[in-house]
Nucleic acid binder design. Structure first.
Lengths: 209, 209
DNA sequence: TAGATTGTTAATCGATTAACAATC
DNA sequence: TAGATTGTTAATCGATTAACAATC
């Protein structure tokens, strides 16, 4: 349990979580790794091995309790807590994320939205008023913000990221098309939305061959 | 060159492409795999091996021509063509993607936006009017649509995807939190935005330990 | 107890990295 | 030619899958 968990395993955790949530909604109480295997198109050994990185959640001859396993993964992913979030950039993606109601119910509370464009300042998105980027530093001092969402042009992303880190943010969710550096202080998740579209285009071409 | 290209290699192509675009903007004419290695935090052998899956684009003693390599990767990814796109669901993400101007300039032309909510029908996003979902089937018959972007609730995603496939769409870019099935006819890129936020939360927890 | 299914070790497979001959 | 750097083979590493003893 103290071994380093591989990136591949971590990236599968949200998938397990989603699947277990669905099973719970359907009213299922228990599930075996082989049943999960079929439902998720993953190898059953892999599922058992993945889960055993974090503990022995199953029971021989029975399988896993859906509810229990879901809760355990929720804890492992640390999505059972509360996070204070700021969004920088109130353009297309920034607005979409700001308006996304589920975040708050999942514990990601949007405390502030910032933009450099004065014409956007003052607009209210999901009950949060857009402030000017100049206010960011002071805002970070006065509020305990954990996560910063970057939806700025790529030119601004690293500098704003540094400001966020300086202000105590330890997680950056970056939608700007550049790999932002956490300076060893913050974890960074770089999204690169359009990469997915490019990969899709590649596969469409390959398929049509 | 006829060997099956691994998913890992394909996922790195957009990253190479972005990096080369940046180099070109900076006015660089040539680059070696070891220089790329430093700039991208990838192993130089890996870069050469990846590129050689598709052809010998380099030159011994010289390296790679930035412009040429960029153009080659563009062709490999098939992002040098034109695609006709529809967006299904004009909610937060759907709107953000519809308003994203760069798509059109990159050859992804949004031909139609559809929603089941009558109150959204008639709204114009980036010069395209939102139509009622009922019109989708006919629209697909009358237009040659290649790609469908799904930004619907998860309950509707698979059914609409099937309609799209029936209408000749061969690529689905799915933002609904469910794994959509291409029925062997269409390529599907399932995005799962919130997975990234979960992984970020996990890593923030691990780091703080 | 018998059957089922986990947890875990061993085997396989594939991806990454190192090394170097080829060659510009 | 000498130096640089690719393209490619060989070595290593890590991840996936299979197998099975442990056990509920």
């Amino acid at each position: 349990m103290n071994e380093k968990i591989s990136e591949a395993v971590i990236r599968r955790l949200p998938k397990y979580y989603r699947y277990l949530c669905d099973l719970e909604t359907l009213g299922l109480e228990r599930i075996s790794s082989s049943a999960m295997s079929k439902g998720m198109s993953l190898n059953a050994s892999q599922i058992r091995r993945d889960l055993n990185c974090f503990g022995g959640f199953g029971q021989q001859g029975y399988g896993y309790s859906v509810k229990n396993l879901k809760e355990e993964i929720k804890k492992i992913l640390a999505i059972d807590g509360n996070y204070n979030v700021v969004i920088i950039g109130s353009g297309n993606i920034g607005q979409a994320l700001a308006k996304y109601k589920s975040f708050a119910s999942e514990g990601y509370c949007i405390k502030g939205i910032f933009d450099i464009d004065s014409s956007r300042v003052g607009v209210t998105l999901n009950k949060v008023e857009v402030r000017h980027l100049e206010e960011l530093e002071t805002f970070l001092e006065e509020n305990d913000i954990n996560i910063g969402i970057l939806s700025t042009p790529k030119e601004a992303a690293q500098e704003i990221s540094d400001t966020l880190i300086e202000g105590g943010v330890t997680g950056i969710w970056n939608f700007a098309p550049i790999d932002v550096d956490g300076r060893g202080k913050a974890e960074v998740e770089n999204v690169h939305l359009s990469d997915g579209l490019y990969v899709l285009s590649y596969r469409m071409k390959e398929k049509s061959k």
